[in-house]
Amino acid sequence: MSVLETQAQKVRDSAKKLLADATAQTVIGYADEGVDGLCVPVFITDVKDVGRLVWNRRSVPNLASYLIGRKGKTAIVAKPCDARAVVNLIVENQIKRDDVHIIGMDCPGMTDAAGAALHACETCQVNTSPVFDERIENAEVKPVSPEKRDAERGLDENLARFTKEMEKCILCFSCRQACYGCYCQTCFMDRGVPDWHPESPDMGAKMLYHLGRAMHLAGRCVECGACENACASGVDVRYLIREVTGFVKELYGYDTGLSLEDQPAMLTYQPDDREVGFLGGEAHG
């Protein structure tokens, strides 16, 4: 049996046990019932259905947002990035620690239909779950490579890149819907006053959406790549968010979803925080 199939069997065994002894009322996991082998989310509530649960290189969706608003205890099959999302949802008081059972999967990285590594997985920094109730190991998962940030570019280049990405965007909001962190009941883009999103979505609306969303995900993004995987227009959805999240880490020493105790960087302050970019303060590096 392959290592992945062993992991899958452990998921099924665990689900069976959790449901049988009523530790959890529901197990959220992956079923191989999508198109081109792409796994879809499945909610198992009955022991006789655990056979539908799978685990493979196409267990792509981030399931964390399904935990919001659930009643009773829910177990979740979580890739490390999804587990970070779960942790951040707990830290942000969207769900309770006691209401969730994290089945933390060691992750070999996910692929597209052709078997090529997904963009987010290529640069993954956390491939074992930081917080879990049980860990399902995979001995083939190797330690991660050092973090890669984009090289600094000049302003003109930055502007050209931003414009190029925005030209591709059709404002379908799939990236927002896929993101665990975009759980707002009403997104600012759906508000009428002021008209963040005019009837004819122009360049300005696209810029505003992506800049606004990047601000909202700064220090909250868990680098799962769900947003970019969801985009059918080939937009590099994540690069702004990656830069600001890296900046938050650099400045405030905060990494999202690694600990249940840490205060999220943007929800706290220090009286002597650095004033990078302020009038008379230090310059941006």
Binding site: L155, L159, F162, H284
Partner: peptide, 23 residues
């Protein structure tokens, strides 16, 4: 202060000259 610091970084990455935005 934290929001503005991060915002200014974001704007730079998105091609806005940092000298346009002052806190």
């Amino acid at each position: 202060r934290r929001r503005f610091t991060v915002l200014k970084k974001l704007l730079t990455v998105a091609g806005v000259n940092p000298d346009r935005v002052h806190f």
